[in-house]
Simulated scan of single mutants.
Amino acid sequence: MSQALVLQTDFGLSDGAVNAMYGVAHSVNQTLPIYDLTHDIPPFNIWEASYRLLQTCNYWPRETVFVSVVDPGVGSERKSVVAKTTTNQYIVTPDNGTLTHISQSIGLVEVRAIDERTNRLPKSGASHTFHGRDIYAYTAARLASKEITFEQVGPQIDLNSIINLCSQKADIENGEIRGIIDILDVRFGNLWSNISRDLFEKQKINYGETVEIVIKHGNRKVYVNQMTYGRSFADTRIGQPIVYVNSLDNMAVAINQGSFAKAYNIGTGSNWSIAIRKTESTYSKNGINLATRQHQQQQ
Rank of each mutant, 00 (worst) to 15 (best):
S196L: 03
G189L: 03
E173D: 12
K146L: 14
L165F: 01
A140F: 01
G230C: 01
L54P: 02
V18I: 07
I266L: 14
R187L: 13
L54T: 07
D36E: 14
G97E: 05
G267P: 05
Y59R: 06
D158H: 06
G73Y: 12
Q152R: 02
S76I: 03
Y264A: 12
F66V: 00
N119G: 05
L184C: 07
Q168Y: 08
I180V: 11
V69Y: 01
R277N: 08
S232R: 11
H128D: 10
N29H: 08
R52N: 10
Q3Y: 12
N256S: 15
E77W: 13
L165H: 04
V74I: 12
V82E: 13
G218M: 05
V243P: 06
I106R: 08
N289V: 00
Q168A: 06
N286D: 14
V6H: 08
S259V: 07
K285T: 14
A113H: 03
D134P: 01
A141W: 00
Q296L: 02
I163V: 12
G132E: 04
T282Q: 10
E209R: 02
T149S: 15
S247C: 09
A234D: 11
Q168R: 10
Y264E: 11
N225Q: 09
D198W: 12
G97T: 09
N174K: 15
V222K: 13
S167W: 14
A141Q: 00
R187V: 14
E201K: 07
I46C: 09
T38V: 11
Y283M: 12
A49V: 01
V214R: 05
N96K: 01
N190P: 11
A261I: 15
A113N: 06
A275W: 11
G132A: 07
K169L: 10
I148C: 09
E280N: 12
I180L: 09
I180K: 04
S196C: 02
R187F: 12
E151W: 10
K123A: 14
H39R: 05
S281I: 15
I135L: 03
D158M: 08
Y35M: 13
C57W: 07
T139A: 01
Q203E: 11
W47G: 11
G218Q: 00
Y136C: 04
S27F: 07
Y136V: 00
N289A: 03
I46S: 07
E116L: 05
A20F: 00
S193A: 05
H128M: 04
E63I: 01
Y244W: 10
T292N: 14
D71H: 11
R142E: 04
K278N: 06
S27E: 08
D36I: 02
L121M: 15
N225H: 10
Y90G: 04
M251F: 00
A20N: 04
F11I: 00
C166G: 07
G132H: 00
Q203T: 15
K221F: 09
A4I: 10
G230N: 01
R293N: 08
Q203S: 15
L99K: 03
Q30N: 08
